[in-house]
């Protein structure tokens, strides 16, 4: 297993944290992981993304110019990253916020109504968890749902840990969705 992921959205959607959550879960399953955020000037203008590599082998380059999995949470991210996905790869897009349909036919395209799932569970801010739930459902070899739920205790800052009950509900709801 060697997955190279981009998780992208606007600032505040928790895409950087989502990447870290996956890394911690996979690390605890003895996989090699790397996470590198977009930083500095790239961060300005409200968009954010992180590059995540999860692998059975040591990780060379931490950057992800051609993702095997792209998770895009808003329209600008879809526009930017859809063309980059490796042929045969997976594109998960947040159809709660993205109206247009991805055009690529050489990749698997899956939609997740991330904000709707989050709101249905009682939070406006757990769309990132819905996206992660969907990733886990489609790529169980990255990490188990249990590992991810366990990783929440480490990945989420003490200040926000009180929201973990809802985070877990959203994760499970998205994971279970067909």
């Amino acid at each position: 297993m060697h997955e190279r992921m981009i998780i992208a959205g606007f600032g505040g959607q928790g895409v950087i944290m989502a990447g870290k959550l996956l890394c911690i879960a996979a690390m605890n399953e003895n996989k090699y992981v790397s996470h590198i955020p977009s930083y500095g000037a790239e961060m300005r203008g409200g968009t954010a993304n992180c590059s995540v590599v999860i692998s059975d082998k040591e990780i060379g380059s931490p950057t992800v110019p051609k993702p095997t999995i792209a998770v895009v949470m808003n329209t600008p991210s879809l526009t930017k990253f859809e063309p980059m996905v490796k042929p045969g790869g997976l594109l998960i897009y947040n159809s709660s916020l993205i109206d247009q349909k991805p055009k690529r036919t050489d990749i698997t395209v899956v939609d997740v109504k991330a904000n709707d799932i989050s709101e249905a569970e009682g939070s406006t801010r757990a769309a990132n968890m819905a996206a992660i739930g969907k990733v886990l459902a489609l790529k169980p070899e990255i990490a188990s749902l249990e590992s991810v739920i366990k990783a929440l205790d480490v990945a989420i800052s003490a200040r926000n840990r009180k929201h973990n009950d809802i985070n877990i509900k959203v994760l499970k709801a998205a994971f279970a969705q067909k």
Binding site: Y32, S34, H35, I36, P37, Y39, I59, P62, T63
Partner: peptide, 9 residues
């Protein structure tokens, strides 16, 4: 910069 920004085990 990559080593500074990367998170790993």
């Amino acid at each position: 910069g990559y080593l500074g920004q990367i998170s790993e085990a």
